[in-house]
Design a protein around this nucleic acid. Structure first.
Lengths: 202, 202
DNA sequence: GCTAGTGTGTTACCGGCGGTAACTTCTGTC
DNA sequence: GACAGAAGTTACCGCCGGTAACACACTAGC
């Protein structure tokens, strides 16, 4: 089942390449079969046998964490950039939401894996995803505190808002992905309206 | 391991009672060991053998769905009541958030099972939890549309807000549960501020 | 050129899971 | 008291995550 079984032997590539090669195979399987994909299936897809996966990633959680990490850092950087872009507050808000929704729209299977199904089974994976949301929330909290000019003793309030807003965008994305009642731009606008209104009133 | 093994035989109770009895046992195990609890463990806790569980609930997903349903309807009714209570908008908002946070604070394990870990493994359970959030969001959407006096062609906008707000409260709860940076009343107030501000600006 | 060592790969297994088939025991009914 | 049928058990199946033990390539030193 390997896509290039002739290159299966890692000595032709070096360990670094092998790892990427295995992650590519794992990602294909996970995006195709969902997060309940078995290690057997992943090994078969890569054209190798199971113990190799375990040598590289320790256990299933390790593989899934590696899989998530490949995308989390990229996504986080993207969102941080949108949140700190020199522009109006409204534009920054819309840019961040839009970046998020582009991922959701462009690769729903990856989105679900990163945000939901990472939560499956092994707690390590869930922790990794939770940590991603947390880092995102904390980054946003700093922006909110600055935006509202909150003194340091009111930072927890900004954090409450920030983590809430992250969850809001995610939940709205989920609903929108199922329903598709309007285009991406409309959802961006609606959510930005909500957040902007809260800002304006604070 | 049965708490009343002498009553294990269901003929002494009738099938309805048996079902409740089994659900009680299952809930004890799930809240103690997390959602990865095995059917063997649940059967042992109830003092019966595995096939009985399967006769009553079909499969693991069926049991978990039954477990979730016992609480979902109650919680949903509670929240609906808070959302339609005759009071000011602000009071209704706070009442609903407060009801939610009381559950989170009072029984975190149950909360996690209902909202997160229900998402584990079997898709049926995940669907049930998603449906709960959906129903809650839809109920809130009706309230929002009425509150803002939105015409029918703008209902999707109210839905986007509603589902977003549900996710917001949930995500803020998660963060708060981990961090406990302030009391429940403060979180209620912060979130109500956010929502109220958005309302006021809409 | 032979040997030793190291990394890369395999097969074959383990315990435990979800789920089921086949059998036994109890209970109520005529 | 014989019997239908529900209630409950034991013993199994296939599959999973994970591992031990062994086989094959490549390189280094003599």
């Amino acid at each position: 089942m390997a896509t290039d079984a002739d290159q299966a032997r890692a000595s032709r590539r070096g360990p670094r390449r092998t790892r990427e090669y295995l992650l590519d195979a794992a990602e294909r399987v996970v995006l195709r079969e969902g997060p309940s994909a078995s290690m057997n299936a992943i090994a078969a897809e890569a054209g190798i046998s199971k113990p190799i996966l375990y040598r590289h990633f320790g256990d299933k959680a390790g593989l899934y964490v590696a899989l998530a990490d490949r995308h989390i850092e990229t996504l986080l950087a993207l969102l941080r950039e949108a949140l700190t872009r020199p522009a109006t507050r409204r534009e920054r808000t819309e840019a961040a939401i839009d970046a998020w929704l582009r991922l959701v729209e462009g690769n729903p299977a990856l989105y679900r894996f990163l945000v939901h199904r990472g939560q499956a089974e092994e707690p390590e994976v869930r922790d990794r995803v939770a940590m991603f949301q947390r880092r995102l929330g904390d980054a946003l909290a700093i922006g909110i505190a600055a935006e509202l000019g909150l003194p340091e003793d009111q930072w927890p309030r900004a954090q409450a808002w920030a983590h809430g807003i992250v969850g809001m965008v995610q939940a709205a994305s989920d609903w929108w992905l199922d329903e598709q009642p309007f285009g991406r731009e409309d959802l961006t606008r609606h959510l930005a309206d909500l957040i902007d209104g809260a800002y304006a009133h604070a």
